[in-house]
Lab assay of single mutants.
Amino acid sequence: LKKVVALYDYMPMNANDLQLRKGDEYFILEESNLPWWRARDKNGQEGYIPSNYVTEAE
């Protein structure tokens, strides 16, 4: 899975979204639905995130 790091905080707009915290790492599960990607956080929560809020992890 592709790993990304959040560049900004993101508060979910609806139940399908995943909250982002700046500096945290996330795994990308699906990239087909631009600009929204399906992601999983370190706690196993899954949801959609804005792809322009993250960058690929080193």
Rank of each mutant, 00 (worst) to 15 (best):
M11N: 12
K3G: 03
L1D: 05
A6Q: 00
N33M: 12
E31A: 12
N14C: 11
E30W: 10
Y53Q: 05
E31C: 11
R38F: 15
K3H: 06
E30T: 07
G47F: 03
R21D: 06
E25P: 07
A15W: 10
L7E: 03
Q45T: 12
L1G: 08
Y10M: 04
F27L: 11
E46D: 05
N16S: 12
L18F: 04
N43S: 11
L18G: 00
E31M: 14
E25I: 15
Y53E: 01
N16V: 08
E46S: 06
N14L: 07
S32M: 08
Y10W: 15
Y8H: 10
W37L: 14
A6D: 00
D17C: 13
N16L: 11
R40T: 06
G47N: 01
L29K: 03
E56Y: 14
L7N: 04
E31G: 08
E56N: 13
Y26I: 05
E25W: 14
W36Q: 08
A39W: 02
E58N: 13
L1E: 06
G47S: 01
K3P: 04
G44L: 05
E46L: 04
R38K: 14
N14G: 13
A6W: 01
Y8E: 08
A6F: 01
N33F: 09
N16E: 12
N14R: 11
L29M: 08
M13T: 14
E56T: 13
L7Q: 05
S51E: 05
R21H: 14
N52I: 10
P35I: 15
Y48K: 06
N43L: 12
N52E: 12
K3V: 12
R38Y: 15
D9G: 03
P35E: 15
I49C: 03
M11S: 12
W37P: 05
Q45S: 12
T55A: 12
W36R: 10
R38W: 15
E31D: 12
E30H: 08
L18A: 01
W37Q: 06
A6E: 01
K42P: 06
V4Y: 09
E30S: 10
F27T: 10
D41F: 01
I49G: 01
K42N: 09
L29F: 07
L1W: 14
G47E: 00
Q19K: 09
K3Y: 06
N43G: 08
E46C: 06
K42L: 09
D9R: 02
R21A: 08
A39D: 02
I49H: 01
L20C: 02
D41P: 00
W36E: 06
P35Y: 15
W36P: 05
V5S: 04
N16C: 13
A57D: 09
L29Y: 06
L20H: 00
W36L: 09
